[in-house]
Amino acid sequence: MKRKVALTVNGSRREDEVEPRLLLVHYLRDVAGLTGTHIGCDTSQCGACTVLVDGKAVKSCTLFAVQAQDAEVETIEGLATGDQLHPLQQAFWDNHGLQCGYCTPGFIMAGVYLLSQNPNPTDDEIRKGLEGNLCRCTGYVNIIKSVKDAAQKMGAAKGAGTPVAAGGE
């Protein structure tokens, strides 16, 4: 039997009728049409599906859409402001933090969560913060560099009084 679910996705309120077994990731991709959140495994291990629910990074393949009732969900599509990329998106671009790009939305959302908890992480803290995300291409070195670069730019932007959401540099 379908149930109503009402939640906010990237700032817009939505209400849909869904089956309880619909996973949040399928809801985002197939119902809300936001295909930036990827599915990389069947075992809750790869992190490609990472989104923020009420500010916390979660694997959207391991949560039913009905559980997101009244939650604020943020996906990769919600990060940029117009043409202005979020500092993490820009840093992945600048530092070759991706190759095929399949894992990238998950890494970036996990990175956004990491920097919200720890704005100035060491390399080891970045590695631990991203342990729930797997990449088959880059070898991780550039991913860590990207997060470090974003942290520095976001820190500098904050220091200079520039709003972080407005692009970072």
Partner: peptide, 24 residues
């Protein structure tokens, strides 16, 4: 019972577990 779902949902996705109802 459905709590954090991080053992139960992976099992349900593999259909190793097929509960008739979940109490969240």
């Amino acid at each position: 019972v459905l709590a954090g779902g991080h053992s139960l949902i992976p099992l349900m996705r593999l259909r190793l577990s097929q509960p008739s109802a979940l109490v969240d």
